[in-house]
Design a protein around this nucleic acid. Structure first.
Lengths: 258, 258
DNA sequence: TAGTGGTCTAGACCACGTT
DNA sequence: ACGTGGTCTAGACCACTAG
C-alpha cells in the first residue's frame, strides 16, 4: 500500500528569488496529486481512498496537511467524508449527487415523481464546428449525438440533446443506453471512466420549436426553458455539451444564490 | 477591546448522557457568536472585525478554533479574509458580490453594459396572504411593494416586483429609492441594516403578460424568464420576495452546478 | 476493540500589506 | 518593523462505525 513518492514536493518558499512567483502551498500540491490519482482511476467512484494517516505517510507530510487537501476536494464534491468509515470517491449513483445536476423540481412537493428516461436517438457523426471547438476536438473528429426524453410520471418534461466526444465514448450506442437503468452520468462513470464533476449552464426562455413541441406534446411556440450546459470532468476537461428544453408549467428550475 | 464572555461555551462532550444529543463543536459555537455580532451590528458591512488572536482571547479558545469558525463564515460569503490586512464584513458595495445575485449576463462578453435601475413604483400596502406567510408577517401588517426596471445600455431587460416587510423598511419611499445610486441591496444594508446573505430562486419560462410586455417593449406573449426569489438575511430570516421577468434574447441566466 | 474522520491546542514560520 | 492572515507540524482526545 505504501508507495514511493515520485514527485518532489516543494516546501514553502525555496528557490524563490523575487516575491514568490507561482508559490503553491504544500496542501495544494497534495490536492493536485490526489486529483491526479482520481483522474487516472487509482480510486474509482464509490471506492474508499486510503486513510489520512496513510496518505500523510505516502506524501511525507503531516495529517493536517492531507486533511486540508481532502477538505477542499470534499467541498468540491469530488470526495465524500464519512466519520468512522473513511473517505470515498463521489459517485453519481446517489440521489444526493443527482439532484446537483437535475435542477428541475415540482412546484408541489407532493408531485414528486421519479424521472423516466427514454432514448429517442443516438448517432455518431462528424463534430459540427461549434461543438468541436468547445469540446477541444480536431475538425472532423466524431461525436456521439443523443436525444433523450425525461418524463415525470408519464408527463414528458425534458428533452435533452447531448454531444459527447466519440473517442472517449467508444462503444456508446442506443442499445447500451437503452439497457441502462439509472442516471446517464452513472453510466458514463462506470462504463467509460468519465466522471462529471462540474457544469456551467446558460438559461433562456424560448418558444418551443416543432421538434420540442411534438416531443413534449405542447403547442409550438409555448414558452419553455432552454438550458445550455457544458460539463467538465477532473481537471476542468470539457466532456459534454447538452441543450435541454424544460417544460415549466408544473415544474421549475431551482437555484440557490450563496 | 477585550470583553467578558457572557455565554458559557460547552467544551466537547460534557454532561451528555446517551450518545451526544445535540453536540455542537466549539468552533460552531464561536461561529454562532460571530453571527450574532454580525446580526446585532457590532461590526457593520465593510468594516474590519477583530484579529483572530483578539477573538481567540475574547472567547478563550485557541486561534485555530476561531480560524475554523471564520473559515466557514468566509465560505458562506459573510466575511471576507484579506491576507496582511484582516477580516472584513462582506458588503454589497462590490461588483463581486453583486454578480452573485445578478445572474443575467450578456451572450457576448463585448456587450457588457452597466445596469441602469429605474423605480417605476413604490407603495405601502397590507400584505397579501401568500406574501405575509412567506415573510413571517402577521395578517394585516404592511409591506413595501416596489416595481423596478433594470436596463442594460438603454435596453430594458429586467422588471422586478419586490416585496419587503414594512416594519423593517420604515422610511423606504420612492424618493429614497430614486436618490440611490448603486445596488438596491447596498441601500438596504446601509440605510436599513438589512444584509442579504443568501437567496433561493425558482425559474420558469412564461409568456409576457401585458404589464411586462409594455415595460420591456416586447410583444405580449413573448417568452421570458420568470424568476421568483426569496432572500434571507443573517440567521435564515426571510426578508425579501422578488419576482423578476428577464428578457433573454441577448442575455442569459448563468449558473454553475458544483 | 480497533480504526476512521473530527475537534482542539500550541507553537513555529511564511506571505502580505501597512507603517 | 510590525501585525495580519496563511501554512505546517505534532500530539491529545472525541465521535462514530464496524467487526
Amino acid at each position: 500500500m505504501a508507495e514511493p513518492r515520485p514527485e518532489p514536493l516543494v516546501r514553502s518558499s525555496l528557490a524563490d528569488k523575487p516575491q514568490s512567483a507561482a508559490f503553491s502551498p504544500l496542501y495544494r500540491q497534495i490536492k493536485a496529486l490526489l486529483l491526479q490519482s482520481l483522474q487516472q482511476g487509482e480510486w474509482k467512484p464509490g471506492e474508499l481512498i486510503p486513510s489520512e494517516l496513510d496518505l500523510a505517510a505516502r506524501f511525507q507530510v503531516s495529517q493536517g496537511t492531507v486533511r486540508k487537501a481532502v477538505d477542499e476536494l470534499a467541498a468540491e464534491h469530488m470526495l465524500q467524508r464519512r466519520q468512522g468509515r473513511g473517505t470515498f470517491v463521489s459517485t453519481h449513483n446517489e440521489a444526493r449527487v443527482r439532484f446537483r445536476f437535475l435542477r428541475l423540481a415540482p412546484d408541489q412537493e407532493s408531485d414528486a415523481q421519479p424521472a423516466q428516461s427514454r432514448i429517442l436517438s443516438c448517432k455518431r457523426l462528424r463534430a459540427p464546428l461549434d461543438i468541436a471547438r468547445v469540446l477541444d476536438l480536431r475538425t472532423g473528429e466524431t461525436v456521439v449525438a443523443i436525444r433523450r426524453l425525461l418524463s415525470f410520471g408519464d408527463v414528458p418534461s425534458v428533452v435533452d440533446d447531448i454531444w459527447l466526444p466519440g473517442g472517449v465514448f467508444k462503444g456508446l450506442t442506443a442499445e447500451v443506453l437503452a439497457r441502462n437503468r439509472g442516471p446517464l452520468y452513472a453510466l458514463f462513470e462506470t462504463e467509460f471512466g468519465v466522471s462529471m464533476v462540474r457544469a456551467d449552464e446558460k438559461i433562456r426562455a424560448v418558444a418551443a420549436n416543432e421538434d420540442a413541441a411534438s416531443i413534449l406534446r405542447i403547442d409550438q411556440g409555448t414558452p419553455i426553458l432552454q438550458v445550455d450546459r457544458l460539463s467538465y470532468s477532473y481537471g476542468d476537461r470539457p466532456v459534454e455539451i447538452r441543450r435541454g428544453w424544460y417544460l415549466t408549467d408544473r415544474y421549475h428550475y431551482r437555484n440557490s444564490l450563496n
